[in-house]
Amino acid sequence: MRLTTTIIAAGCGATQLRAAQWLPPIQAACDKYGIAEPLDVAAFLATLGAESGRLVYTREIWGPTLAQQGYEPPSKKASELGNTQPGDGRRFCGRGLIQITGRRNYTLAAIGLDLDLVNHPELLEQPVNAALSAAWYWASRKLSALAITGDFLGVSRAVNLGSATSKAMPLHYSERLALYVAAKKSLGLI
């Protein structure tokens, strides 16, 4: 599917200028990972918009907050993220348009993207890599299967809670849903 600045702006909630800047990397990422069906594209763009603050952030804002302090070993969350070394929480904070977080996920993304992300995690802040990592994440978790059936809640739960079967409501779901509706409108689906 050929994306436009208008489609990206609507689906991600971004300005036209920001959408124009992101058009080439997002288009390339969608092409590489086969994100092409209209409902898939709508869900992907809405997720990018929600996860990146409307295409503003490619790096998690670091406090550290109480939750971010939990990224440090020896916590349970650090273990889940594969963070084993002191400083891993900050070093492997969320990066990319769908934020890759934790040493384990950076290692997997490094293999999938053929980038040295363990030694250079900041590579995920670059627009091309930020978009590719989001599409890689999408493909590696088979989110297109949920998206093309219109299960946007399932997609949102899988991205934000780590499980499509979770009963909890994803973070900022009303914002995600509004972006999804806008994306579907821009694609002529509604």
Rank of each mutant, 00 (worst) to 15 (best):
S140N: 14
R141K: 15
L161P: 01
P170M: 03
A145R: 14
S140E: 14
N160W: 10
S144F: 05
W138H: 08
D151V: 07
G154R: 00
I148T: 15
L146V: 14
D151G: 04
L161H: 07
D151R: 05
A139C: 13
V155K: 04
H172K: 13
A168N: 11
R141W: 09
R157C: 03
G162Q: 08
V159E: 02
L146P: 12
A158S: 13
F152V: 12
D151F: 07
L146I: 14
M169Q: 11
A164N: 07
N160C: 09
Y173C: 06
L153V: 05
V155G: 05
M169R: 15
A145F: 02
D151A: 10
G154M: 01
S140W: 01
S144K: 00
G162W: 11
A145H: 10
D151L: 07
A139W: 13
A168Q: 12
S144Y: 03
S163C: 10
F152I: 14
S144G: 15
T149E: 10
W138R: 11
T149F: 00
A164V: 06
R141T: 13
V159T: 00
M169Y: 02
S140M: 09
G150L: 05
A168R: 14
G150E: 04
L171T: 13
I148W: 00
P170W: 05
F152G: 12
W138K: 11
S156N: 10
A147E: 01
T165A: 11
A145L: 14
T165D: 09
A158T: 08
A139Q: 14
Y173M: 06
A147N: 04
G154K: 02
G162K: 05
G162R: 06
Y173N: 11
Y173L: 10
R141C: 09
A158H: 07
A158N: 07
N160S: 06
F152L: 13
L171A: 15
A168Y: 01
I148G: 00
H172W: 10
S156P: 02
L146H: 12
D151P: 05
K142L: 08
N160Q: 15
A139E: 14
T149R: 11
P170I: 07
P170E: 02
S140Y: 10
T149D: 08
Y137R: 01
A147K: 01
T165V: 12
Y173V: 02
A139I: 08
G154I: 01
V159A: 00
A158R: 11
A158K: 13
L161W: 06
S166Y: 07
S144L: 04
K167C: 02
Y173D: 00
P170C: 09
S144I: 05
L143I: 13
I148S: 09
A158V: 08
T149C: 00
Y173H: 13
P170H: 09
A145N: 13
K167E: 12
S166K: 08
L143F: 09
A147R: 03
P170D: 06
A147I: 03
K167I: 06
A164H: 10
S144A: 12
L161K: 04
A147C: 00
S140H: 15
